[in-house]
Design a protein around this nucleic acid. Structure first.
Lengths: 333, 333
DNA sequence: GAAAATTATGTTAGCGCTGAGATAAAGCAT
DNA sequence: ATGCTTTATCTCAGCGCTAACATAATTTTC
């Protein structure tokens, strides 16, 4: 009578089969007679058997862990990616193990190393920037790797996201179509957030296409936030007066910009048009819904996890999945 | 020459010691001669040895995993708790494994069971509500358990948070002190979010103390959001006109309420005062910073993880840590 | 200076599971 | 009936590490 947590052996004994047979039933692998399966599952239920994952991982030298590396949790975008990943995993035996890099590549490398010690089934990372050592670890290991958010790079194995360059261009085209000509940019520190820089590049491209250029620009020296957006727009307006639209690096910044306009009595969009990026809920809850671009963070996470689980081996060629984006027309630009 | 990932044996051979000695150096356990330690660490560096966690867990029947159960990732509050947990773990060998329950106790139980299959060092869960089976699993297992956010309950092992009842009362006292008398409540569905209900109870207590009662109330039938806050305040105002202050179930709702006032030209706080809960950044970025209560989510997560790691055994009596809260005076109430 | 305590290291037996191969039983064509 | 394949099951070694105990070398104690 096992008073401790039951093991495969206990189940096997109760069901009158070998341990291996139980293992195959549990993992649904190989062929098993219907009658045997029934006996085994009933024994499992009776004992409340739960497989020991450590033992399984050790024996098979691979675990049911999916390592997830995120640059930050402060920005709601990444928890939403994580939510998507979780949604894809929730009905599988896989479990996400998360690591936060704080946009620090050396930190990413450290966390990556300790994650690989678990022999995870896959690694999902937001972004393409890695140290050489990280890249080597990901390359040499034949585990599956998804790099998220962006598709403007060649991935190691799988990329899921959309082109931030195109998104930037789309913002420019939208504003030009609406008749804005003196278009400024308010951003945040893009040494950490490379994608924000890609969008900026796309914006410049798009404006150039229309024979225009960025009329003024100011970047907050730190991560994006509503407060940073408010203050930075304020400073921009002191420096450069005659601007008729502002593209922000993201919605957080843009909502802050909107707050600045409210405080200063600036009529949006008549006096100044505002355009964001991400399609966060808060932007849509403003008295005038923010004009912005919807990035499908949840979908990116979900698609990545689902695609990784479809095959345990990498394909010969890296694979890229474009989840696209939509313009949210809004009422601010 | 091991072409595959090196094991303890490889390190031991290279350093000319037994495997066990290497193991003790790695885990920093037992006494080791300075000279030996040097030889071993140098061998580790040379081979790039990383311990196999699965093997370690199996042998010691406990892993370096911390299971984290969160009700949601959509509400920024929980990612912040996770951020705190991560901050406490980042310089340790522990790794967080996360599960999202979607406020569903049966889902929590399922995830909990599969987490326990990893023999985690501890489980951290946001909230005190569990199925009987979950509670049994947490009780019988002698692993450490932290229940977060709230301290209005008796925990299984450790509680970290603050009294939501007191926070509700503090809101009432603040508003009464400021001279508001006709105080309404705008909330969201509290079958899922029990803590919101506790705050409501506290609010009622506090008002009663001052000889008052909730002047009007309306609850949105769903999770909190800015849009829900905006719409629900709108509906409340149609139904009950003469209210001079509104307490919201949280900042998301309150910011939505502020948006409603902006749209309808209601002067805050002269015509209507608004009071939130959580102290989110967005509330402080409004043209008038939101009057609210700061709950230290990051601190709660960090304290919980730190406290759990201080001792691997439960104390005889459950332990409660009050992280407190502060009133943010703001400009809306 | 012998016994006891302390420090440093080695030896050995698993932890609970899976993979590979062996075996047995059943199905099928010839 | 005979060999050949397929299906269902078993046997057993071993994944890489740690716990427990054993041993050896050193220091302390009286």
């Amino acid at each position: 009578m096992p008073s401790e947590t039951p093991t495969l052996t206990d189940v096997a004994r109760l069901a009158g089969v070998s341990e291996n047979t139980v293992s195959r039933v549990v993992r649904n692998k190989g062929s098993i007679a219907e009658e045997t399966r029934r006996r085994v599952t009933s024994a499992i239920d009776q004992l409340g058997y739960v497989p020991n994952r450590a033992a399984g991982s050790l024996a098979s030298s691979s675990s049911l862990i999916i390592g997830v590396l995120l640059p930050s949790l402060s920005n709601i975008v990444f928890p939403e990616v994580l939510r998507g990943i979780h949604a894809a995993l929730v009905s599988t035996p896989y479990q996400p193990m998360i690591g936060v890099t704080d946009y620090d590549l050396r930190q990413e490398q450290k966390i990556l190393a300790s994650m690989l010690a678990w022999q995870p089934a896959a690694i999902i990372t937001a972004g393409f920037e890695h140290t050489d050592e990280s890249r080597r670890m990901l390359q040499s290991n034949r585990i599956r790797v998804a790099e998220l958010m962006d598709i403007d790079n060649r991935p190691i194995d799988l990329a899921v996201g959309f082109s931030h360059r195109k998104a930037g261009r789309a913002a420019a085209e939208h504003l030009v179509r609406r008749g804005y000509r003196r278009i400024a940019y308010v951003g945040h520190d893009w040494t950490a957030d490379r994608r924000a820089f890609f969008r900026y590049e796309g914006l410049c491209d798009g404006l150039q296409q229309a024979g225009l250029a960025v009329a003024a620009e100011l970047r907050f020296n730190g991560p994006s936030s509503t407060l940073a957006g408010r203050d930075t727009l304020g400073r921009l307006q002191q420096q450069a007066g005659d601007v008729d639209a502002v593209v922000f690096s993201n919605d957080d910044m843009a909502v802050g910009g909107f707050m600045h306009c409210l405080g200063d009595g600036i009529d949006v969009p008549a006096q100044l048009a505002l355009f964001g990026f991400n399609g966060l809920e808060i932007g849509q809850a403003l008295p005038k819904p923010l004009s912005t671009i919807r990035s499908n963070r949840f979908l990116i996470g979900k698609t990545a996890a689902e695609t990784l689980l479809q095959a345990s081996e990498r394909a010969v060629e890296p694979h890229i999945i474009d989840t696209g984006f939509d313009i949210i027309e809004g009422a601010t630009a």
